[in-house]
Computed example of a mutant assay.
Amino acid sequence: MKTSKRLDLAVNKLYNAFHNNALHPECCKQCAVGNILDNKDSWKHLSDHHGATELNYIGKVHQTLGRKFNGYTPLELLQIEATFLKACGYQIPLHHKNKKPKNPTDKDILFNGLTEVVTLLCELDNIPNIMNYTALFKKKNTYQFDLTFFT
C-alpha cells in the first residue's frame, strides 16, 4: 500500500517514541503531536489549551496562510492531539480537574492512543487504515482437495 511521506514519518516517530518510552500525553514535547514535530512544543501556541480542537488567533493565522508543520496543518495537529488524549482516557482539554488516567504512561493506554492516532492519520491522507489487521485473518482457499479419494 502506498502511503504519504508525512504519514510514514509520523508513524515512524510515534513508533520510536512508544518503544523508547518517550511518549507522555501530558507533555507538549512528548505527546503525539510533540513527537510528530520532533519534540518541539511550539505547536502548543496554536490553541489556548492542550487538547483543545479550536484554533486561537495564532493558529488561525497559520491555518489561513496555509502553513504546515511536518506536513500537517494547525487544525490537523489539534485533531491529532485531541484524538490521542481522548483515546488515552483524558477529558479534553487537559485541566487538573478533568478526568485522566491513573497511569498515563501505561503501555496499554499509550497503545490505545496511538492506534486511534494512526487511524486518524490514515483518514487525513484518504488511505485505508494501516492498523486494520482483519485482512491478516482472511484466509484465501488456495488448495483444492480431491475428496473422491476418501469415499
Rank of each mutant, 00 (worst) to 15 (best):
L114F: 07
H24T: 05
K107S: 14
E26F: 00
L94K: 04
T148Y: 14
H62T: 00
K2I: 04
T83L: 13
P104L: 01
F18W: 12
V118N: 01
F111G: 07
Y57S: 10
Y15I: 03
L23W: 02
T83V: 15
E81Y: 12
L136A: 14
C28K: 10
L114Q: 08
T105D: 01
N132P: 05
K13Q: 11
A82I: 13
G66D: 11
K5C: 01
K102L: 12
T119G: 03
L94V: 09
A17L: 06
E54N: 13
T134C: 12
T53I: 11
F84I: 08
L85N: 12
H45N: 09
Y57K: 15
D41S: 05
A52Q: 05
K139H: 13
A32E: 06
Y90A: 08
N141P: 02
L121N: 06
L110F: 07
Y133V: 15
F137N: 13
K68M: 07
L55P: 04
Y90I: 08
N16Y: 10
D8V: 00
C27F: 08
Y72Q: 09
Y57E: 14
Y143T: 09
D106V: 09
F69G: 02
Q63R: 09
N39Q: 11
F150R: 11
L85E: 10
I36Q: 00
I130H: 01
T64W: 10
T64R: 13
K107Q: 15
K44L: 09
G113S: 12
L94T: 00
T142D: 02
T115C: 12
T148S: 15
P25I: 00
K86D: 15
A32T: 14
P101D: 02
A87W: 13
K5Q: 10
I58A: 04
K138H: 15
S42W: 05
Q63N: 13
D146F: 08
K107R: 12
T119M: 05
D108F: 12
K68V: 14
C31Q: 02
Y133A: 14
P74K: 14
D41H: 04
